[in-house]
Design a binder for these strands. Sequence first.
DNA 1: AACCAGGACACAA
DNA 2: TTGTGTCATGGT
Length: 307
Amino acid sequence: MVASFASSSCLSAATCIEEASARCRTVFPCRDYDLSATLTSGQAFRWNCRDAGWEGVIDARWVRLTSGADGIVAETASPGGDWAWLKGWLRVEENLAEILATFPDDQPMRAATTACRGLRLLRQDPWECLASFILSSTKQIVQIRQIVALLCERFGEPLDVPPGREPQYSFPTPERIATATEAGLRACKMGFRAPYLLAASRMIAGGELDLGALSAFSIADARARLMELPGVGRKVADCVLLFAYGFQEAFPVDVWVMKALRRLYFPRRRVAPKRLQRFTATYFGPYSGYAQQYLFHYMRVHRRADD
DNA sequence: AACCAGGACACAA
DNA sequence: TTGTGTCATGGT
C-alpha cells in the first residue's frame, strides 16, 4: 500500500488515499444473501465475525464483507481490480428464488428454506476446498477451523492486512505441503488425516491429478478422479464438487444430513445408506446440492437433545 | 464423563 | 455388496 502511494502520480496525499480506498472497496447489489448463514454453514472455514462484519481470506487477499442496504459491501487490503474474483466466489448473481422454487414442496424443505433464508453456496478454490475437507472427517466444524488456521499459519504466506488486524496467511499450495513432513502436519492437530493430506498434495503437485481440468468433466468422471486421492471418499468428493466446482447436483451425505434424511423422510424405518443416496439423486431436483445445504444448516441450527 | 464430530480405509463375512 | 474396528483430537 505504502509503495503504491509513493509510485502513484496523485497530486495530494488526501486524494491519493481516497482513490486507493475506492479501489479497495465495492458493493455487490443483491438481495436474499445471508452472509452469516453462508459463512458458518460448514462450506468455508476461514471466516470470523468482527464488528458486525465477516473477515477472511480468499486466494491471497484479506477480505471484509458486510451486509448493506444495497447489497454486500466488500473491503480488501489491496486494490480489488475488476472484482470478478470475488463476485464469482460469492455467486452474487445467482438467482436464489429460482433455485428454491425447484425444491420439492414438502414440509421439511419448507421449514429449512424458511429458517435459513439467504443461505447461499460459494464457489471456492478447488485445492483449498479439497484439502479442508480431507481434514474434516469426524471433526466438528470448530475443530476444522482450528486445523486449517494452524496449517495456514505454519505453511502459508503472510498477506497484506489493514492496520490493527491479526496477521493473515494464504492457504498453502499443494507444492508447499508436499515438502512438509507428516510430523509437521500432525503438529497442526490433524491427527490421522496428516498422511492423507500429505499424499494427496504430492499427487497434485506431481501432476498425477490436474484439479483445474476437472471443471470440464462430467460430475461422475470428476468424482471418480477426486476419489483416487487418499483420504477422499464419496462424501469429501461431493463437498468439493459442490463447493468448489459448482456441480449443483452433488449431494454430500454426512452424519447430519443422514440424520435429517432418516428423520424427515423415512421416520422409524430402517433404510440402507445406499438407498438413501439413490433417493437424494432423484428426489431433490436439479439443485439438490443446494437443498442438501439447507437441510444440513437447518439440522445444525435447530439441533435437538433427542438426537 | 461418556459420547460424538460435514469419514476413509483395510478387512471380514 | 454390507458390516466392523481403527485412526487423533477435543467440543458438548
